[in-house]
């Protein structure tokens, strides 16, 4: 490199001024969330006052359950708090969940939010087509982004929109048979509370040969006669769904 161009680069570097790391804070940003002074059960204490709690996803009221606390305590004593690899209890838990749902196997992630966003890129590769409800939560959106697949959104919980989207993809892609195609929906949408019409989704999925990934975070343990989720609620055999994910921080209170 010549002396001149070196000097030029020096000057450019000197002149460059970065933006600040974060934008200036507004009043809105400074607002503080409530601080709980007891467990977030149906009643909780905020600022020394007892209040009724409608904010927590403690669907089954398992917070503070005596039996659970006992078994958690003995697990803490035996295994410590953090983990550093698979434990036999983890594997037992995986097979119990699988048995509960009626699927061949299951895998446990350590954090609800990361489940979808690890699972999606694991299945999908570049070039796959994914049809997604536009109302899905952030974990799914991020997983989709990381998968680098072609992503098509359909109108929130609108089956006509889903059908026309699937129709269009099938027509547009002559290679469609070779292409991996997925539908991603939530059972109960975290952001809108709506329930996905699973029977209709299954009909469309079978018609157009798509795989379905279903996030049951807000329905696992809640919907269906024995809490097995949306499939039980609609009486759909669980084998029809290709992948089911759920966060255990809600109904299971862990």
């Amino acid at each position: 490199m010549t002396m001149e161009s070196l000097k030029e680069i020096d000057e450019l570097c000197d002149e460059w001024v970065p933006e600040s790391l974060i934008p200036p804070l507004t009043e809105e940003i400074r607002c503080e969330p409530p601080v709980l002074e007891s467990a977030s059960g149906p009643q909780t204490v905020i600022n020394g006052k007892e209040v009724v709690n409608f904010a927590s996803a403690n669907y089954l009221g398992l917070i503070g359950h005596e039996k659970l606390l006992e078994s958690c305590t003995s697990a803490l004593e035996k295994y410590g708090v953090g983990s550093c690899g698979p434990r036999d209890v983890h594997l037992d838990c995986e097979s119990r969940i699988a048995k509960f749902l009626g699927t061949p196997d299951s895998i446990l992630y350590s954090y609800g939010l990361s489940t979808m966003f690890s699972a999606i890129p694991a299945f999908r590769k570049e070039g796959d087509v994914i049809v997604v409800d536009e109302g899905v939560h952030w974990g799914i959106q991020n997983g989709l982004y990381l998968s680098r697949s072609t992503i098509v959104y359909f109108k929130h919980n609108d089956m006509e929109s889903l059908q026309s989207t699937l129709e269009k993809i099938t027509l547009d892609n002559k290679r469609a048979k070779k292409l991996r195609r997925y539908i991603v929906v939530e059972a109960v949408y975290q952001n809108s509370g709506q329930v996905a019409p699973l029977d209709e989704i299954i009909r469309l999925k079978e018609k157009y040969h798509f795989c379905v990934l279903l996030d049951e975070s807000n329905s696992f343990g809640v919907l269906g006669r024995s809490g097995r989720g949306l499939t039980e609620y609609y009486g759909v055999p669980v084998e029809k769904i290709d992948v089911i994910t759920a966060a255990m921080g809600y109904a299971l209170a862990t």
Binding site: A55, A57, I63, C72, T254
Partner: peptide, 14 residues
């Protein structure tokens, strides 16, 4: 309890 069942901004901050 083992979990707060909520995110930090709505009832998950103890």
């Amino acid at each position: 309890s083992p979990s707060t069942c909520s995110s930090r901004v709505d009832g998950g901050t103890t």
